[in-house]
């Protein structure tokens, strides 16, 4: 465990909590892509099946359980409790265009052709693109609430910090996981455009709105 890995995890946790609190406090999930949140719930479910087969550490187990629980709570708030506020008309990204190719790829390119490893690989590939419905929604409506942009910032920061963590681990531990690294690079690149807008607009107190 190095500082980049730890701050990456905490940044991920911050993103998840920010989103949950935003929905809970405003009693609304307006501007939030339910599809992205469903994909994240699927990501955590397929990745953390090793909870049943192996114990790494108390930290590892607790964080996995928290991520899974929070992602299901978020999906519940969007599709059940505050369904009336869900902006389904703008959440029109076709998720099958992500899930099907990612599913196929995880069968073809993995470390080991075993059920748990294929599901882990699936979750890594899926996570890298799971934010696309949310970014698509923002590009469609042309704007995002500031709190939503904070959520996206921490979510993007998490994978960027993981990239530094992997460089660290490569040099100091000889650890290298090509699947995670390539997917992590793709995932981080998807946030670059958003990072630019976040720094140039949101951090200067302006609302994130895109030119029509």
């Amino acid at each position: 465990m190095n500082i980049f890995r730890l701050t990456g995890d905490l940044s991920h946790l911050a993103a998840i909590i920010i989103l949950l609190l935003k929905i809970w406090k405003t009693r609304s999930c307006a501007g939030i892509s339910g599809k992205s949140q469903l994909l994240f719930a699927l990501v955590f479910t397929t990745r953390y099946l090793d909870l049943f087969t192996s114990f790494i550490s108390l930290y590892n187990t607790s964080m996995k359980l928290i991520y899974v629980a929070c992602s299901y709570a978020t999906v519940y708030l969007i599709y059940m409790k505050f369904k009336a506020t869900y902006d389904g008309n703008h959440d029109t990204f076709r998720v099958e265009f992500l899930v099907v190719p990612v599913g196929g790829l995880s069968f073809l390119v993995n470390h080991d052709f075993s059920p748990l490893e294929i599901l882990w690989t699936f979750s890594i590939y899926l996570e890298s693109v799971a934010i696309l419905p949310q970014l698509f929604m923002i590009s469609k409506t042309g704007e995002a609430e500031t709190i939503t942009t904070h959520y996206l910032f921490f979510l993007g920061l998490y994978r960027a910090l993981y990239l530094i963590n992997w460089i660290w681990r490569y040099y100091f531990e000889g650890f290298f996981d090509l699947i995670a690294v390539v997917a992590g690079v793709v995932q981080t690149i998807l946030y670059c455009d958003f990072f630019y807008l976040y720094v140039t607009k949101v951090l200067k107190g302006k609302k994130l709105s895109l030119p029509a």
Partner: peptide
């Protein structure tokens, strides 16, 4: 680690 069940990263 790589290709083993039970991952230490999240």
């Amino acid at each position: 680690g790589q290709g083993v069940e039970g991952k230490d990263e999240l």
